[in-house]
């Protein structure tokens, strides 16, 4: 555990978990997940209804729901009465079966997005702070740039794992303590293979976006610079989230190509399982993109790349300023 990667990761981890605000935020998360799970998992009480419909001026139709408060004998008697009035009567159709894993998938995508947005902000600050006060130089005099990049991503990533773990452990505990509707909502987490798949996608997603964040932080001179440089990435994250939500609500076929676009890949894979071949190719592509992003961040740290400077074009007669002297 004396490797620079672990040492830097440990320091980043401690920098966040030793603050009171972190534990307050950590405690709030499970309240949302348990609440959401209960809301999604709770079965609606069967409605007590008798549906009578008229078909375009022709015959009438009546349907009972299962929960209609009459005994079979009472229903039969009622039907007789209705038929006597010349109505076509039939039983209510069975309720549409729910997809038990849809909530789990939605929860995973939301958690990924929330933890990415939160953790990447922390990562950005961690890099910018040390870049601005030149503490990075001290680190780089003792460790390779790649060690520093990996250490920072791993450290903040561990904080993210702690957050996600807590947020998932809370509803899982609730499901164990109160089986029934809650357990149904968590059906997607019951399969260890599915969990392992989600974990791989999570790791790759965090690595990909984490390395891009470090690269943005390395280019920045201060926090304002960093936020400007990271803004396009956060915009992509936002678009990815809403695109994924759209895909989950039925437009998946038209958007399936986004699965192969690395910024979208983790979200698309989590929200809608794809055929095995597609999954393998998409995950491999995301892995390659993650490695490339890591290499870029490391090289930028080594070279100390500065952000491109933009100068407004001068119109008219050139003016002199104090800086010219």
């Amino acid at each position: 555990m004396n490797h620079p990667i672990w040492l830097i990761a440990g320091r980043e981890f401690r920098a966040y978990v030793t603050t009171a605000s972190f534990w307050v935020a950590l405690a709030i998360g499970p309240l949302f997940t348990v609440g959401g799970m209960l809301a999604a998992g709770a079965q609606r009480p069967a409605q007590e209804q008798l549906v009578i419909t008229a078909e375009a001026g022709a015959a009438w139709e009546a349907r009972f729901s299962e929960a209609f408060p009459l005994s079979p004998a009472g229903r039969a008697r009622m039907l007789e009465v209705l038929r006597g009035e010349g109505l076509a009567v039939q039983a209510a159709p069975p309720p549409q079966p729910r997809d038990p894993e849809s909530f789990s998938r939605f929860l995973l995508v939301t958690l990924l997005w929330v933890t990415l947005v939160g953790s990447l902000g922390m990562l950005l600050q961690a890099v910018v702070r040390e870049r601005a006060n030149r503490a990075l130089e001290t680190l780089l005099s003792a460790a390779r740039p790649l060690d520093v990049v990996l250490g920072k991503v791993l450290g903040v990533g561990s904080v993210s794992v702690l957050v996600v773990g807590t947020w998932l452990a809370a509803p899982a505990s609730a499901a164990l303590l109160a089986p029934g509707p809650a357990l149904g909502a968590l059906a997607g987490f019951a399969d260890p293979l599915a969990l392992a798949r989600a974990a791989v996608i999570y790791l790759l997603a965090f690595g990909f976006y984490g390395f891009l964040t470090v690269a943005a932080g390395v280019m920045a001179r201060d926090s304002a610079d960093a936020q400007n440089l990271a803004r396009p990435m956060f915009a992509v994250l936002l678009v990815a989230f809403f695109t994924t939500m759209a895909a989950a609500t039925g437009a998946a076929d038209k958007m399936s190509w986004l699965t192969f676009l690395p910024p979208f890949t983790p979200f698309m894979l989590l929200v809608r399982p794809a055929p095995l071949a597609v999954e393998v190719v998409a995950i491999a592509e995301l892995a390659v993109a993650t490695v490339l992003a890591g290499w870029c961040a490391s090289e930028m740290l080594r070279r100390g790349v500065s952000p491109p400077r933009f100068r407004w074009p001068r119109l008219g007669r050139p003016k002199t300023s104090v800086r010219d002297y």
Binding site: N2, L7, A15, T19, E130, N133, A135, E137, T138, A142
Partner: peptide
Amino acid sequence: GFLPEERGLFPRERARDVIAFHARLKGLEK
């Protein structure tokens, strides 16, 4: 051993921990 011109240490870290951290980065056991 290197002391940069612009001093940058984690303000939340304890003095003893930050010294030990830098020593471990350079290969010293915990």
